[in-house]
């Protein structure tokens, strides 16, 4: 289906993707370091952990995805599962 003559789009070039990712990593790094520069108002005990939100966000999402992946093992069925009676 893809036309070889077709115009090159933004993310067709791998270097654009890696440029985007590099910028993204940079922002992540800056945000993490800002935690030590800016004064954060602490209202709950966990917030005292340096970089709490960054760590929490990363770990939470990895756990979320890995658990969901495990859930597939017993939840996943074929698309016509409900359409056929056994």
């Amino acid at each position: 289906m893809q036309d070889p003559e077709e115009k090159q789009y933004l993310f067709d070039k791998p270097e654009n993707v890696s440029r985007l990712l590099r910028g993204f990593y940079l922002i992540c790094g800056i945000l993490f370091l800002l935690d030590f520069v800016l004064h954060r108002h602490i209202s709950i005990i966990w917030e005292k952990i340096p970089g709490f939100y960054a760590l929490f966000g990363f770990v939470a999402c990895v756990i979320l995805v890995l658990v969901a992946k495990e859930m597939r093992k017993f939840l996943m069925r074929k698309e016509d599962y409900y359409d056929v009676d056994e």
Binding site: L31, Y53, F56, G57, C61, M76
Partner: peptide, 26 residues
């Protein structure tokens, strides 16, 4: 921080091939 590092997790999982692929399923 929360959001960017969530996104970082997505990028990392994808690069590691750990992200569950979209499958024809329910």
């Amino acid at each position: 921080q929360l959001l960017f590092f969530s996104a970082l997790a997505f990028v990392w999982l994808n690069k590691q091939g750990l992200y569950p692929p979209e499958l024809h399923s329910i």
